[in-house]
Amino acid sequence: MTVAVEEIRLNLPHIELAAHLYGPEDGQPVLALHGWLDNAMSFARLAPRLPGLRIVALDLAGHGHSGHRAAGASYQLWDYALDVLAVADQLGWQRFALLGHSLGAIVATLLAGAVPERIERLALIDGMFPLTHEPEQAPHQLGEALRAQLALRDKRRPVYASVERAVEARLRGGSPLSREAAELLASRGLTAVAGGYTWRTDPRLTLPSPLRLTRAHAEAFVRAVRCPVDLVIAEQGLPVQRGEWLALLDSLPVRVHRVPGGHHLHLDDEAGAQAVADCFKALSAAP
């Protein structure tokens, strides 16, 4: 399925972000947030299946065609949350829906809990809860992050002789996804350099987080959400979304849709994209 897609740039006070724009000008406003190391192409198959929506699919900071954060700045969940609010303000959207996958779904949930007056609805794909740790793990976590930051200065970006080699590398790393999905992400995520191609993503995105929320923190954010929530859980997706948090989900007013497919089911193939779109029909009915 193909529709008209507009490439836009958003000049925020602290960074410039790129995005794909779908849908009519008078459509319901939706900000779409992709997963870690992905980009706006994550929604290339899904967005055309959500009619009546004005979808701005961002390249999150450090991803795709968006800018990288300044030296010394970070890529924490709350940094992305601020970016999203700044984008909404620039677009003139006081209230809007959030469509998120994986990392983007986690950011969307935290934002909906923190500023519930701004968020109309959440549509989440295989993500909702952040990775957590207990307080006693924090010193070790920070130490690992600091050492990794210092070591990054001596690392070089990988260079692939061809786009195909880069796609193969993506297929070998991270969560499983289809070749077509990897090719779509690579079409926006690669840049030509001497000797071949490398990923546009900021290398700092691969560093460990200096601090993680505790489970109590994460649960507090989820319980603070006041808008309707639809959560798609991929049956072959991230185990954390199917395991330890399921009991909490049962106690929350969240509509859970269990759908066959992997973590990138909305991008892997046309059938997966349609299955996810069918779960999110309520987006178009938002007030």
Rank of each mutant, 00 (worst) to 15 (best):
Val5Pro: 04
Pro130Cys: 10
Ala220Pro: 04
Leu213Tyr: 04
Ile125Glu: 02
Lys155Arg: 15
Arg121Gly: 10
Asp202Ser: 12
Arg242Gly: 06
Arg156Lys: 13
Arg69Ile: 09
Ser162Gln: 10
Gly243Gln: 08
Pro51Met: 11
Arg258Gly: 13
Arg45Met: 11
Gln76Val: 08
Asp269Pro: 07
Leu184Thr: 00
Gln149Cys: 10
Met1Gln: 10
Arg215His: 13
Glu6His: 14
Leu152Pro: 13
Glu120Leu: 13
Ile8Thr: 15
Met41Glu: 01
Lys281Asp: 09
Glu219His: 12
Ala47Glu: 02
Thr201Asn: 05
Gly72Thr: 07
Gly100Met: 04
Asp269Arg: 03
Leu46Arg: 00
Ile8Tyr: 11
Asp126Arg: 02
Ala81His: 02
Ala32Ile: 08
Val163Arg: 02
Pro287Trp: 01
Gln236Arg: 14
Val87Tyr: 07
Leu122Cys: 12
Leu58Gly: 13
His68Gly: 03
Ala123Asn: 04
Ala194Ile: 04
Ala70Cys: 05
Leu111Ile: 12
Ser66Tyr: 01
Ala47Ser: 10
Tyr80Ser: 11
Val87Leu: 10
Phe221Glu: 00
Ala273Leu: 07
Val225Thr: 07
Glu244Pro: 11
Pro208Ala: 10
Phe43Tyr: 13
Ala145Trp: 03
Ile15Asn: 11
Ala194Met: 05
Leu111Pro: 06
Asp250Ser: 15
Pro51Phe: 09
Val115Thr: 15
Gln149Val: 12
Leu111Met: 12
Gly262Arg: 14
Leu213Asp: 00
Ser102Gln: 05
Ile125Leu: 13
Asp230Gly: 01
Ala44Trp: 00
Trp78Val: 13
Leu60Ala: 14
Val254Arg: 02
Trp36Cys: 04
Ile55Cys: 10
Ala97Glu: 03
Ala4Trp: 05
Pro210Arg: 02
Arg49Glu: 12
Glu244Gly: 08
Val30Glu: 01
Asp268Phe: 01
Leu252Phe: 08
Ala166Lys: 00
Ala40Tyr: 01
Ser178Asn: 09
Leu50Lys: 03
Cys227Asn: 06
Leu171Tyr: 05
Gln90Glu: 14
Met128Cys: 14
Glu7Thr: 15
Glu25Asp: 15
Val163Leu: 04
Ala61Arg: 09
Glu120Arg: 13
Ala112Ile: 03
Lys155Trp: 07
Ser42Asn: 14
Glu7Phe: 07
Phe129His: 14
Cys279Gly: 07
Arg223Ala: 14
Leu12Ser: 05
Ala181Gln: 04
Glu244Tyr: 05
Ala71Ile: 11
Gly196Arg: 01
Val276Gln: 00
Pro29Lys: 01
Ser162Phe: 08
Arg204Phe: 06
Gln94Asp: 15
Pro203Gln: 06
Pro130Val: 09
Ala105Pro: 04
Asp154Tyr: 09
Ile15Tyr: 10
Gly27Phe: 08
Ala194Glu: 15
Glu7Val: 08
Asn11Pro: 04
Arg170Asn: 03
Tyr160Pro: 09
Arg147Tyr: 05
Gly27Met: 11
Gly23His: 03
